[in-house]
Design a protein around this nucleic acid. Structure first.
Length: 812
RNA sequence: GCCGAAGUGGUGGAAUUGGCAGACGCGCCGGACUCAAAAUCCGGUGAUGGCGACAUCGUGCGGGUUCAAGUCCCGCCUUCGGCACCA
């Protein structure tokens, strides 16, 4: 069989007969399989794409053959920086290069032979899609979940532009490695923090990899503690957030973030110059330095004092950049004895260090003692309480005096979605001198992205200098107004695409809730683990927000999630152009065919692990497929009518059904390598049967071979169609909602083999009847010659019988 | 520093969740077929010792629990991912 010709033949037939069209009338049996859509880069499909899409397509086909009405769409995440950067370098317009790349990738994806339903294709850069991205922005805006504020953003002084967070790698620009600085700009944010708690709780309800859930938990960063109010001598008050209220009697100073608004108000004349200089220095410091934990503590004294509410002590107020303005209240209490950072700070500036916690066994360990222990040295009712008790009791006590409260904080920040970039969805907001910030009316959507724009970077949003775009009229008063010149982060586009797919051509709505509430949640989502704290978190947020607006009736978009592993270069490093270790599937596909290549990927790696590429064994996969073809040919050639089921047939029938059972389980679990191994074993058994020099039972053997083809069908779809046709089967193997079913009766054996151990060492194998009880099994074991010899003169202490597993005879 | 995952033959990787470690491949060795080779079909292949039946050792390291540990517990080492002055 020429694999290449066969592929073309069946791809054409599948397309002509619309085999993979989703049938809406069978929505009750729907199964939504979704692979993360592709970014249309200039390069061809690489091994990673194949590794994502090939095996998951096999899974989708498996579900289809098991009676599911599979919905498996494909599309393109088409906005984004790489196309724009490419445009800056080459002068080719991002739209032109993107659409061209999409066309190429569509062809390649089709050549892969995946069962995508192309009728539902999405391209996020097209107006019929981003219109609805803008619509969703407006819904978030209306519901108070989108707001504008001034905020520090990442600025690359070399590229002269703002960078997205994900473009900052270890504090430096990912493109030119220049250290990123902070700059204040007025930006749009989505209020993801409103859902912090639900995003955290929801993780317990979904079938996701534990490590991904752990990453999201970590990212959300819930911490429970208390806020404690301090009154300044000037009369101003501020609060600190702490998880260690049990140490509040040990406060010897408080420290504000340099950006804290109170700083300018309370700083004394004498300290003004020092504080001013320190603040200026902080603004200049690079992100890399600011992030460093090994850096020596710095700070400045404001000259002001406040009162510790628990003991009335007068406490100096300092500022220091180890306190982050964006977390908690932007102020912390300094307890040198019980916090490592405070200890360093207190040492450096000669501040008091007072122990108020001792360890539970009563000993005084070295300072700083940061563990939970017992409160001491405070001369209050709290002395003797454990840290756990004390940290709640003290805050409650303060609460009764209105000087504090229990408080939960999250590390999660609101999502900054403004980008000073051209190639993205415009933000549907205009600014009017009279009316201020005005939302574009929904009837005026989309706010189209103009084609003729100077997108070379000059430090401003490219759209700002596009007169035809930027100048508009105010929807409220009809007066002159200007559009927002920024575009949205591309993660906004990908936060809802799974909602658009099932209703991809709706021009009245983003999606029809009637349809979407039946089609979602996605039953199986497959994609890379690198999206754990970005896309996968944003998408969950969008789902919950749209649910609260009444559009959706489910809480989580992706019920079950699988991460494919990464295929590395032969050198064990991530594939990259600069390393020159990129493996192109094309060489293999054109030589061996897409089925063989896909099967090799599935057999050679553990799907969720991935690993370094090696072509060793690629040929053996081809040989295996040829071996399959030969046994199929042999079956076709058989034509005697012997209908007797002898011992050989029974044995083969056992393997056949065992294989069906195991392969089904493995396919469901994305354990493709073991599924293939089981099929190989089955083929080996078929050959053994075929090699028996007696007459074969032709119809039985042919049935066995048919099952083999069906088991292989999801894995090598073209070849299976061809073999099925050769066998005289009906088109198509994927039409059948009858994946081979395991006949449990065939798995019942009269007797089975069992291992016998003496003192946990394997000594013999015995065959016992299936219905033998433990005593009977023990007797058979004891009568075995090898067992007798092994026991020799020893005394039997105990016999452990585990049916179907082993017998262990303990002797002395 | 914190969180998470992993470490198994020459090699890619299995192991029904505490029950015969190394399935299935690759590689290697041997047999059949052939004048010969390739292809194919069949068999062997963790290490050490022994002609041998067998024996001993063996899942990163050191302890432990158990009749039984790759799997569970305690203490380490290494690698990879993520987070990191988050109070």
């Amino acid at each position: 069989m020429n694999f290449i010709d066969v592929e073309k033949k069946w791809q054409k037939k599948w397309a002509d007969t619309k085999l993979y069209s989703f049938d809406k009338t069978k929505i009750k049996d729907k199964y939504y399989v979704l692979e993360m859509f592709s970014y249309p880069s200039g390069a061809k499909l690489h091994a990673g794409h194949w590794y994502n899409y090939g095996p998951s397509d096999s899974f989708a086909r498996f579900m289809r053959m098991n009676g599911k009405e599979v919905f498996q769409p494909m599309g393109f995440d088409a906005f984004g920086l790489p196309a724009e950067n490419y445009a800056i370098k080459s002068g080719i317009h991002p739209q032109d290069s993107t659409l061209k790349n999409i066309a190429t990738m569509e062809n390649q994806l089709q050549a892969m032979g995946a069962s995508f339903d192309w009728d539902y294709e999405i391209k996020t850069c097209m107006p019929d899609y981003y219109k609805w991205t803008q619509w969703i922005f407006l819904q978030l805006y209306k519901n108070g979940l989108a707001y504008r504020k001034e905020a520090p953003v990442n600025w690359c002084p070399s590229c002269n532009t703002v960078l997205a967070n994900e473009q900052v790698v270890d504090g430096a620009c990912e493109r030119c490695s220049t250290t990123v600085i902070r700059k204040n700009l007025t930006q749009w944010f989505f209020k993801i923090t409103k859902y912090a708690e639900e995003l955290l709780q929801g993780l317990d309800t979904i079938d996701w990899p534990e490590k991904t859930k752990a990453m999201q938990r970590n990212w959300i960063g819930k911490s429970t503690g208390g806020e404690i109010d301090f009154k300044c001598e000037s009369g101003d008050t501020f609060s600190v957030f702490t998880t260690r209220a049990d140490t509040v009697f040990g406060v010897s100073y408080v420290i504000l973030a340099p950006e804290h608004p109170l700083v300018d108000k309370i700083t004394t004349k004498e300290q003004l110059a020092e504080v001013k200089a320190y603040k200026e220095n902080c603004a200049k410091i690079s992100e890399i330095d600011r992030m460093s934990t090994t850096r020596e503590k710095t700070g400045a004294f404001t000259g002001a004092y406040c009162i510790n509410p628990v003991n009335g002590e007068r406490v100096p107020i300092w500022i220091g950049d180890y306190v982050l303005y964006s977390y908690g209240t932007g102020a912390v209490m300094g307890v040198g004895a019980h916090d490592e950072r405070d200890y360093d700070f207190a040492k450096k500036f000669n501040l008091q260090i007072r122990r108020v916690i001792k360890s539970k066994d009563g000993s005084n360990d070295d300072l700083p003692f940061c563990e939970y222990g017992v409160i001491c040295n405070t001369n209050t009712q709290f002395d003797g309480m454990t840290s756990e008790e004390g940290k709640v009791a003290i805050v409650k006590w303060l609460e009764s005096k209105k000087q504090g409260q229990l408080k939960t904080n999250y590390r999660l920040r609101d999502w900054l979605i403004s980008r000073q970039r051209y190639w993205g969805a415009p933000i549907p907001i205009v600014y009017c001198d009279k009316c201020g910030e005005v939302a574009v009316p929904e009837k005026d959507l989309p706010v189209s992205l103009p084609y003729n724009v100077e997108f070379k970077p000059n430090g401003k949003s490219p759209l700002a200098s596009c007169e035809e775009f930027i100048n508009t009229t105010c929807p409220k008063c009809g007066g002159k107004a200007r559009r927002d010149p920024d575009t949205m982060d591309t993660f906004v586009c990908s936060s809802w695409y799974y909602l658009r797919y099932p209703d991809a051509h709706n021009d009245k709505m983003a999606f029809d809730p009637e349809i979407i509430n039946k089609m979602l949640p996605v039953d199986k989502y497959i994609g890379g683990a690198e999206h754990a704290c970005m896309h996968l978190l944003y998408a969950r947020f969008f789902t919950k927000a749209l649910r609260d607006m009444g559009y959706l009736k489910f809480d989580e978009p992706f019920k079950s999630l699988i991460h494919q592993g990464t295929i590395l270069g032969t050198d064990g490093f991530k594939m990259s152009k600069s390393r020159g270790n990129v493996i192109s599937p094309d060489d293999y596909v054109s030589k061996f065919g897409s089925d063989a290549f896909r099967l090799y990927l599935m057999f050679g790696f553990s799907y969720v692990e991935g690993g370094p590429w090696s072509a060793n064994g690629m040929e053996s996969i081809v040989k295996f497929l040829e071996r399959v073809e030969r046994i199929v040919d042999k079956a076709i050639a058989l034509n005697n009518k012997n209908q007797q089921m002898g011992a050989n047939e029974k044995a083969l029938n056992y393997t056949r059904n065992y294989t069906i059972k195991r392969v089904s389980e493995d396919m469901k679990a994305f354990s493709f390598n073991t599924a293939v191994a089981r099929i190989m074993e089955y083929v080996n058994e078929l050959y053994k049967y075929d090699n028996i020099p007696t007459e074969k039972n032709a119809s039985f053997f042919k049935a066995c071979i048919s099952d083999l083809i069906l088991l292989l069908a999801p894995l090598v779809p073209h070849i299976a169609e061809e073999l099925n046709e050769k066998m005289g089967g009906k088109y198509s193997v994927f039409d059948m909602t009858t994946y081979p079913l395991c006949d449990e009766n065939a798995l019942v054996k009269d007797e089975y083999e069992l291992a016998v151990q003496i003192n946990s060492r394997m000594k013999a194998k015995i065959v016992v009847p299936s219905d033998a009880d433990n005593k009977a099994i023990e007797n058979i074991a004891m009568q075995n010659d090898a067992v007798k010899t092994a026991i020799g003169g020893m005394q039997v202490v105990k016999v452990i019988v585990i049916p179907k597993r082993l017998v262990n005879i303990v002797c002395k």
